[in-house]
């Protein structure tokens, strides 16, 4: 009996000690974290050309200047929209083709590297490492090297984005495929289906909604990537933006037209893909 009484008091004090220790640890961690953030920010500011306090007062200067000029020349805007529409289409095309090709390759790699489905189970680690490597290489690296070989234009950006997309989607696809029900595959195997037939008829129907949803999300990401690669010299609307920016004052109506086109496209694709992804994954409209 006495045992329990002492035990309760001991447990309670031990619990309080534990809570206090936990609080102390989280406190120390939090302080460290805050210090790290502050130090990092300080360092970043020191290595920046302009300071933070200096810059923050001017943050609206450039948008104001651009807007001012755009408002003055607002009559030009419709014509500018028409002028930049082809490059916008190019940017979207780069993203779309890269997503399409990347997704097709990702399907192959994902099926080859999923346990239980792989055609050559021994090669699973090889395919996985391939995807890891493809994911790790930033698009700009491939794009810049390809620009040197192929010259500027949409193709280097397309290949670069497709390459990265393959790695990124391959991993996600393979994670989805790991959760497939193997019964249809076994059923197909029992009637003598070949590996492509088993995959096409047994696996793809199960995973298609999730895969499509991931591919749509990638398309969204790839539009941004293709616009930013354009700025580095790979064609599309990013390249036009760069030329307009280099020109500077007097071309700001072009800058605003490109900003607007890009913004509207991204928002539109965002909303549309959000809607379809909700329908694909949850089976109902968003």
């Amino acid at each position: 009996m006495a045992d329990i009484g002492i035990g309760a008091a001991a447990v309670s004090s031990r619990y309080m000690a534990q809570v206090q220790r936990k609080r102390l640890y989280s406190g120390i961690l939090l302080t460290l974290f805050v210090l790290l953030m502050a130090a990092g920010f300080n360092l970043a500011e020191n290595r920046n050309a302009g300071g933070f306090l200096n810059g923050i007062t001017h943050i609206f200067d450039f948008p104001a200047e651009v807007l001012h000029e755009a408002v003055r020349n607002h009559a030009n805007l419709p014509a500018l929209f028409a002028q930049f529409l082809p490059s916008l289409i190019e940017t979207v095309n780069i993203a779309a083709v890269a997503t399409l090709l990347g997704a097709l390759m990702a399907v192959m790699l994902a099926l080859l590297s999923t346990r239980g489905l792989a055609r050559y189970p021994r090669l699973i680690p090889v395919f996985r490492r391939t995807m890891d490597a493809m994911r790790a290489i930033p698009e700009i690296v491939i794009a810049l090297v390809l620009i040197f070989i192929l010259g500027g234009g949409p193709v280097p950006a397309m290949i670069a984005i497709a390459f990265h997309t393959t790695g990124a989607l391959g991993k996600l696809f393979s994670e989805v495929a790991e959760n497939t029900d193997l019964k249809p595959v076994e059923g197909l195997a029992s009637v003598g289906a070949s590996w492509p037939q088993k995959m096409w008829l047994g696996v793809i129907p199960q995973v298609a909604p999730n895969w499509l949803s991931y591919a749509l999300l990638r398309f969204e990401i790839n539009i941004r990537a293709s616009s930013i690669l354009g700025f580095v010299g790979a064609g599309g609307i990013g390249y036009d933006l760069k030329t307009a920016m280099q020109w500077g004052q007097g071309k700001y109506d072009q800058v605003i037209a490109i900003f607007l086109l890009l913004f509207l496209t991204i928002v539109l694709v965002d909303q549309v893909s959000d809607h379809f992804r909700n329908r694909l994954v949850k089976g109902r409209p968003a």
Partner: peptide, 11 residues
């Protein structure tokens, strides 16, 4: 937009 205000650099 930000590089116009803060200049080039990591920040």
């Amino acid at each position: 937009i930000l590089s116009r205000a803060f200049g080039p650099g990591p920040m």
